[in-house]
């Protein structure tokens, strides 16, 4: 899988209250959640992003609560992948489980706001098409690849457990 899109760059410790504030958690509607994505720290984010755009962030992206509404809101905005130096652990597993692609790499330092990025999941490479620089990332371990290939945890569960 290869994705290409425009970069929206964020800093370290972007938490789940930043991604989707708790006052909007009284619904499970994807569109509504997406419309408030990043609102507290980046008003109108959901209106400014386009399909396939890419979020790039620093350390500990998604720290805070266990709300799956956070990766759902991001995915609902049309974001194709989140690239960060590191992810908080619950966000990491939620993203894998719902099928939001995420990439962990220090190449983040070589990416700026509005750059165009190409991420190749098959080769584990990332190209900054704006600057021409290239980087690598470590692919998911086999166990997680299985889940991601199935399209998320529940599809994997269907194949394995639900007859």
């Amino acid at each position: 899988m290869i994705v290409k899109g425009k970069v929206w760059k964020f800093g370290d410790h972007i938490n789940t209250d930043d991604i989707i504030a708790a006052r909007y958690l009284n619904t499970t509607d994807v569109k509504e959640l997406a419309s408030h994505c990043m609102e507290s720290i980046f008003p109108d984010f959901s209106r400014k992003v386009s399909i396939n755009d890419i979020i790039v962030a620093g350390e500990n992206f998604g720290c805070g609560s266990s709300r799956e509404h956070a990766p759902i809101a991001i995915k609902g905005c049309g974001i194709s992948v989140v690239v960060a130096k590191s992810f908080a652990r619950i966000f990491f597993r939620n993203a894998i489980n719902i099928g939001l692609p995420i990439v962990e790499t220090d190449f983040v330092d070589k990416i700026s706001q509005s750059d165009i990025l190409e991420v190749n999941f098959d080769t584990g490479t990332i190209v900054n098409l704006t600057t021409g620089e290239k980087g690598n990332f470590i692919k998911y371990p086999e166990f997680l690849q299985e889940i991601v290939k199935s399209g998320g945890l529940m599809s994997w569960a269907k194949e394995k457990y639900i007859k």
Binding site: G64, S66, E68, I90, R93, L153, M154, A157, Y161
Partner: peptide, 28 residues
């Protein structure tokens, strides 16, 4: 499916916060 599920470690359990899909999977 609440990040503060780690609280129960205080009684010597392994206890951790996960997402809703994890809970769905575990319920099944």
């Amino acid at each position: 499916a609440d990040s503060h599920t780690c609280t129960y470690g205080a009684i010597g359990a392994f206890s951790t916060g996960v997402g809703s899909t994890d809970v769905a999977f575990a319920m099944i």
